[in-house]
Design a protein around this nucleic acid. Structure first.
Lengths: 126, 126
DNA sequence: AAGCTGTTTCGATGGATGTCGATACAGACG
DNA sequence: CGTCTGTATCGACATCCATCGAAACAGCTT
C-alpha cells in the first residue's frame, strides 16, 4: 500500500448489449422479437437471487462501487461462482468493472437500470 | 354468441408471490436473501423473449387485456407452450387470468410492474 | 525472480427450463 | 347427451445454467 494513483484498466468486455436504445413502455406497443431477445437477456441476468443481491450490494455501496473482495464474503459460494455471476451482469450491460491494482471494482450502469425502469412504466392513469 | 353477460371465473392460481410488498430501490440498501429470491422469480419470469412479448401483447392490447386465442397465433409455438409461459407469468404475479365463457383473458397486474420499476429507480442525482 | 493474493477461465456435473405431443378439462352448441 | 373448440396439465426430452475444484492470469511485495 504505497502507491497513491493506481493504473486503471477497464476489465469490462464489449458488453454484448447496447445500453442506449429506445425503449418505449410495454404498454405502448407489442415488443418486436429482436428487442425482446435483447431485453430478455437483461431480465434473465436479474433473474437470479445471487445476482440481484450482487447488484444491490454494488449499487448501495459507498461510492456506488464495490470491490469483488467485498462481495465474495457475503455469500456462501465459491469465488469462481461469484465471478461467473458478475460476468453475467456485465454481459447484460448492468455493471462495469475495472481493475485498480490488485483489486477489481464493479459499479452499476445507471442508463441500463433507467432503460429497464422505463420499460415497466405504466400508462399515465390506467 | 348469444349471451350478453358471461360468468366470470378467476382462473388465476394463488399467485405464489405477493404483489404488495415494500420495495426500496436497489441503491438504498442491500437486498435480503428472502426478498431477493422473490424478486428473482419475477425477473426470471420476464427473462424469456416469448414471455416478454406476451406481457407486452397483453399490456398494450385494447382494454388492457388479451384473449389467449389472440396470443397463440403470434408465435410459432404450440398451444401448450404458450399456456406454460402464461402460467409462469401468472405465478410471478405479473398477470391474472379469468375465463369468460369459452375464452380465457389475461391482464397485467399494474402494482407488480410498478413494484419492479420502483426497485430500479436510481438515487435522485447520482 | 519467486512467491503470494485476488480474480478469472476452464471442464465437469446435477438440476432447472423450454418445447413438444398426447391427454384431460371447461364450456358452448346442436 | 355427444361433439366440437379453446385452454390447461402431463410426461418426455434436449438444452441451458448454477455450482464446484483445478488451473491460469494479474499484480503486488520481497
Amino acid at each position: 500500500m504505497s502507491k497513491q494513483s493506481l493504473p486503471v484498466v477497464d476489465v469490462t468486455g464489449p458488453g454484448d448489449v447496447d445500453a442506449d436504445e429506445c425503449c418505449p413502455p410495454l404498454t405502448s406497443e407489442p415488443l418486436g422479437e429482436e428487442r425482446a431477445v435483447e431485453l430478455a437477456r437483461v431480465f434473465k441476468a436479474m433473474g437470479d437471487p445471487v445476482r440481484l443481491r450482487l447488484l444491490s450490494l454494488i449499487a448501495s455501496n459507498q461510492g456506488g462501487e464495490a470491490c469483488v473482495c467485498e462481495l465474495t464474503g457475503v455469500f456462501d459460494l465459491s469465488g469462481p461462482t461469484i465471478s461467473h455471476h458478475l460476468k453475467v451482469l456485465r454481459e447484460a450491460g448492468l455493471i462495469t468493472g475495472e481493475r485498480r491494482g490488485t483489486w477489481v471494482y464493479y459499479r452499476v450502469v445507471p442508463e441500463r437500470l433507467a432503460q429497464v425502469s422505463t420499460l415497466l412504466d405504466l400508462a399515465p392513469t390506467s
